[in-house]
Design a protein around this nucleic acid. Structure first.
Ligand SMILES: [Zn+2]
Ligand SMILES: [Zn+2]
Ligand SMILES: [Zn+2]
Ligand SMILES: [Zn+2]
Lengths: 132, 132
DNA sequence: ACCTATAATGTAATAACATAACGATCAGGA
DNA sequence: TCCTGATCGTTATGTTATTACATTATAGGT
């Protein structure tokens, strides 16, 4: 389906920065990169990010207060996603696991917990970094 | 084996506030509660929290920048823990799931990812709040 | 074209969360 | 006692995120 969406100027600028980056970025580092394009205030970044996250183009990494471009750009319909974040180089690996999702939704059902959003973030050292 | 540990004065004060609370607290709200006991600066809270987390008595909830007393006070040896956080009342339910842990450690092994720490946080509405 | 409603933007100020740096103090072991 | 490592107090600063309010662009209906 991969419905193409028209991004606004600010959204496109923020998404561009995030897409060119080789890892997650903080909102303020994006702001710094975008000052030459006229950005003046954090809100310009945060507002764009809010929409991009809503569109599924960007993910927020709660454990490191940063944002990363989705690595599955042609399938924005993903359900539960897990992230593996390298603490050495910053690389982020994004994956889904059906079993994990089943276990967590199962727990929620059993406990009458109305699940809205799940965060799974693993931190460690990636293959590249640990082989070096 | 629940080894008893001697907490310092500041650690005991912070742990006391967190234990009496019925949900997670931010470091700054703990600071406010502890001003009458002589606390003056955020670091006094953050330093105590750092140790309490290390001891396994307190958990940090990354997705809401808060801290919560462990609900399994007699077993600080837990491996992977998942949290269900009610966005209405703030209640936190802490649980472990062996299968989820196996899937995530399995992924890490398959991808040569040296896993150091995993965060699993579910946000939604708890049974109490959704029945009310 | 005109009106209107919604979404997006600009800007300043502030709130909320967290750490750096430095020196003082305390506790236990050689 | 002397040394060492952990804890503590304090100030300042760094980092992340939101509130508030005014303005401008966009899309539809008449
Ligand atoms: Zn994605
Ligand atoms: Zn790496
Ligand atoms: Zn626990
Ligand atoms: Zn609740």
């Amino acid at each position: 389906m991969a419905e193409t969406r028209e991004l606004t100027k600010n959204q496109a600028l923020v998404f561009g920065v995030l897409s060119k980056a080789d890892g997650p970025l903080s909102a303020y580092s994006m702001l710094d990169q975008l000052r030459e394009h006229g950005f003046r205030a954090p809100l310009q970044v945060y507002r764009a990010l809010e929409k991009l996250v809503e569109f599924g183009l960007v993910h927020r990494l709660e454990s490191i207060n940063s944002f990363v471009a989705c690595t599955h750009p042609h399938d924005h319909s993903h359900g539960l996603i897990a992230f593996a974040i390298c603490e050495t180089c910053g690389a982020v690996d994004e994956f889904s696991d059906e079993i994990v999702e089943q276990r967590l939704t199962g727990w929620s059902r059993n406990n009458n917990f109305q699940l809205a959003k799940t965060t799974i973030e693993m931190r460690g050292v990636c293959a590249n970094c640990s082989s070096a």
